[in-house]
Every structure is written in structure tokens, then in C-alpha cells.
Computed example of a mutant assay.
Amino acid sequence: MYKKRVSINKRYQLMEESISKEQIRMIQVNIDQKLDCHSTSFMLTSPTDDGEKSIISSKLAISFAEQGKKVLLVDANLRNPSIHNWFQLTNQSGLTNVIVKEEDIQHHIKETLFPGLFVLPTGPNPLNLSDLWVTSKIKGMVRKVQLEYDVVIFEAPPFLNVSDSQILANQCDGVILVVKANKTKKADVLKTKDYLEKTSNSILGVIYQTG
């Protein structure tokens, strides 16, 4: 357990180098101000590039947990799962078991070393991804976790690359966009923004990474 905690601390230091604690706090305050409800669910995505979304998602989840909230961090990025690595968890089961096989979600949610923070990894990749991204199933899962947790954060794949994030966004209270300086194209940002606005999805904020 000691070795695992040391490894977690090293990973947390890497998160600190990527995005400061003050930046995370400002994002958290902005979310709290815009979403005044008992349970909050939101999704982190980027227009076309994964970037460092998983780091930001993890730090946000830790920040909310440190405020005494019960937090669930869901890795919905099946094409590039990474949340489990940050918390040194296995990815043998998770979201796909819940959606595709309709198994009890509590059997696959994993506790972290951060009090109040829980993680649902992606789980094994299904043979057919269309079996996972069924609107009615996603909607049921989101509503269920909203009843159990104060904050639910979904780490999602790039918005314009696949339809996964578009389906998930419609079930969340809001979306945070991660934009990378000198890498993310302005046209892609505007295209993502336009789509979200047309589908009445609330953009909670944009994280602009310069490093």
C-alpha cells in the first residue's frame, strides 16, 4: 500500500505540472456557479485531439472530492482509456460491463486513495462499439449515478472524431472543452461550439492549454 501511495503521489505531481491547482479551482468555482443543483454531471472533451484531458479530468475530480463531495470519475474514452492508469487501477471491467452486459454498476466502480473519489474505468472494448452508445442505456446509467454521487465527471473522446461524445453530451448538465495552443484549429473549436449550442448543450467553460 505504501508503494502504491508513493506512485500515486508521483502521478499527482505530473498533474500539477500540467495544470495548476489554481486553474483547477477557478474551473471548479465556475462550474459551481453555473450548475446550482443537488447533483452535477459534466463531460470533458476536446474538438479533435485527446491532449491532456485525462489529467484535467482527474485533477477536477480530486478537487471536488477535497471539497467534501462524493465524486465519480467515469472513463468514457474507449478508444484511448487512461484514467485507470492515473489512479493505478485495473481496467478489467467497467463502463462496458454496465452498458453492454447490463451488470450492476456498483460491482465495477473502484475506490481510490482520495477520500470521496471513485472511478469507473472503461472496461474491455466491446466487439461492436454501437452496442455501447445506445442513447437509452447511456441515459439510464447517467441518471442512476446522479442519484448516488454529488459530482459525476465523464472523460470523453474528441468531439468531432466520433459520435460517442455527442451522444454523451446530451445526457450531461454541461460540457468543458479542452483546447491546445498551436495544435487545436480555430475552425474545429467553432464547429464544436456550434454543434453544442444547436443541441442546447451548455458549455461550462474552455480550458486553454499553452504548454
Score class of each variant (00 low, 15 high):
residue 94 G to V: 08
residue 94 G to M: 05
residue 108 H to I: 01
residue 118 F to K: 14
residue 92 Q to T: 09
residue 100 V to L: 06
residue 109 I to C: 03
residue 101 K to C: 02
residue 123 G to V: 02
residue 110 K to T: 07
residue 93 S to T: 09
residue 123 G to W: 09
residue 104 D to P: 05
residue 94 G to L: 10
residue 115 P to N: 14
residue 106 Q to A: 04
residue 112 T to L: 11
residue 106 Q to V: 07
residue 100 V to C: 13
residue 102 E to Y: 07
residue 119 V to N: 04
residue 98 V to L: 02
residue 99 I to P: 00
residue 124 P to M: 11
residue 105 I to R: 13
residue 102 E to L: 03
residue 122 T to R: 05
residue 120 L to Y: 04
residue 115 P to R: 14
residue 94 G to I: 03
residue 96 T to R: 12
residue 99 I to R: 06
residue 102 E to R: 15
residue 115 P to E: 13
residue 104 D to M: 12
residue 124 P to S: 11
residue 110 K to I: 11
residue 121 P to H: 07
residue 105 I to M: 13
residue 121 P to E: 04
residue 109 I to R: 10
residue 118 F to W: 12
residue 120 L to K: 05
residue 122 T to F: 10
residue 107 H to Q: 12
residue 117 L to I: 12
residue 93 S to Q: 06
residue 111 E to M: 13
residue 113 L to N: 05
residue 121 P to G: 10
residue 113 L to Q: 08
residue 114 F to T: 13
residue 106 Q to M: 11
residue 97 N to S: 06
residue 98 V to I: 11
residue 100 V to K: 14
residue 107 H to F: 08
residue 118 F to R: 05
residue 99 I to L: 15
residue 97 N to E: 03
residue 119 V to A: 04
residue 111 E to V: 14
residue 92 Q to E: 15
residue 113 L to Y: 11
residue 120 L to I: 01
residue 99 I to Y: 05
residue 94 G to A: 11
residue 97 N to L: 01
residue 123 G to T: 08
residue 114 F to H: 15
residue 92 Q to Y: 11
residue 102 E to C: 02
residue 112 T to V: 08
residue 106 Q to D: 04
residue 124 P to L: 07
residue 113 L to D: 09
residue 93 S to C: 07
residue 124 P to E: 09
residue 117 L to T: 04
residue 117 L to S: 10
residue 122 T to D: 02
residue 107 H to E: 13
residue 98 V to Q: 09
residue 95 L to T: 02
residue 116 G to P: 01
residue 117 L to P: 06
residue 103 E to Y: 08
residue 97 N to F: 03
residue 118 F to N: 10
residue 122 T to I: 00
residue 94 G to W: 11
residue 92 Q to F: 03
residue 100 V to P: 03
residue 118 F to A: 01
residue 98 V to P: 01
residue 115 P to H: 13
residue 97 N to V: 00
residue 113 L to P: 00
residue 102 E to W: 05
residue 105 I to E: 06
residue 109 I to E: 00
residue 118 F to Y: 09
residue 99 I to W: 02
residue 101 K to Q: 14
residue 119 V to F: 10
residue 108 H to Y: 14
residue 96 T to G: 03
residue 107 H to N: 14
residue 111 E to K: 15
residue 112 T to F: 01
residue 95 L to D: 05
residue 123 G to R: 09
residue 102 E to M: 04
residue 96 T to H: 07
residue 120 L to E: 00
residue 103 E to A: 06
residue 97 N to Q: 12
residue 122 T to M: 07
residue 105 I to G: 05
residue 123 G to I: 05
residue 92 Q to L: 14
residue 101 K to E: 11
residue 99 I to F: 06
residue 109 I to D: 00
residue 120 L to T: 02
residue 120 L to F: 04
residue 117 L to Y: 08
residue 101 K to N: 12
residue 92 Q to S: 13
residue 110 K to Y: 08
residue 107 H to A: 03
residue 107 H to K: 14
residue 112 T to W: 02
residue 124 P to Y: 10
residue 116 G to K: 01
residue 99 I to Q: 03
residue 92 Q to K: 15
residue 119 V to I: 14
residue 115 P to W: 05
residue 99 I to D: 00
residue 123 G to F: 06
residue 104 D to A: 15
residue 111 E to C: 06
residue 101 K to L: 08
residue 124 P to R: 12
residue 100 V to W: 14
residue 113 L to S: 13
residue 105 I to S: 05
residue 112 T to M: 03
residue 98 V to N: 00
residue 99 I to A: 02
